[in-house]
Design a binder for these strands. Sequence first.
DNA 1: GAATCTAAAGCCATAATAGCCTCCTGATAG
DNA 2: CTATCAGGAGGCTATTATGGCTTTAGATTC
Lengths: 134, 134
Amino acid sequence: MLITRASEYAILSLIVLSKSKDPKDSETLSRELTISKSFLAKILQSLAKADILNSYKGVNGGFVLKKEPHEINMLEVMSSVEGKAPAVFECSPSIHDCPSNQAEICSIWPFLNKLQGKIDLFLAELTLADILND
Amino acid sequence: MLITRASEYAILSLIVLSKSKDPKDSETLSRELTISKSFLAKILQSLAKADILNSYKGVNGGFVLKKEPHEINMLEVMSSVEGKAPAVFECSPSIHDCPSNQAEICSIWPFLNKLQGKIDLFLAELTLADILND
DNA sequence: GAATCTAAAGCCATAATAGCCTCCTGATAG
DNA sequence: CTATCAGGAGGCTATTATGGCTTTAGATTC
């Protein structure tokens, strides 16, 4: 799948978390955003593993941004929560020859590769700070 | 879901169709791209309804581009096959006040709106011609 | 007109995502 | 040390996306 709710919820969470200096727990966040608590918890865990958030257990624990908003870009956010890069095309962009051996799809491979590159670049250049600043 | 395989298949189809002047039928296209015939047929129908493709029934029928590649942008492609705009956020970007009455989500609404606008602009400016030209 | 080809449209099955619940682990307060 | 709080991890269910199949409709050929 290409871009799922996990990406949406991740970005929503980052915007809210950027406004609070203290850790905010997943249950509070899920109530504020009116989204599934358990699903959100998994997403926040992914963001923590990707070093985008810090997580703290125990009383007054929760999640806080680990980096400055201008250091957090949408490509890394989506990549971390989607389990894979937010690829529009399944053919992995990391390899430069066509992964399938279908003649037709191989002939369009350079175009797909180019499109994926454009999308990746756009997402990589779009930071949380770009969203927060007016 | 925000951006699904329907968008992927639509773009793949458009790239292939851009290379053939004669109508190409959905079964041939599905074989060339090694994707589901019935699912692809529905996608092509959506693209035809959106005036991106022309469809012809009967012998030697099939689909052809209805516009020039530079006139086809990724926002309209995705919007037509996803049934809705490829929104990262469910809150409709067309209304400028927050649709939910949740205090927290309303406070971040302007930021979501801004992000959605950036994404829409990027997709609207990205045409099929941009993908095809080297 | 009859036969054939292919889009259009619907229904149903399968697969993936989104969401729910429970238990476990580490941290803090007392 | 004990109780409590909140993250980490996994299984289970509901919803949605994907794909298979069949029927109908329009167009072409003979």
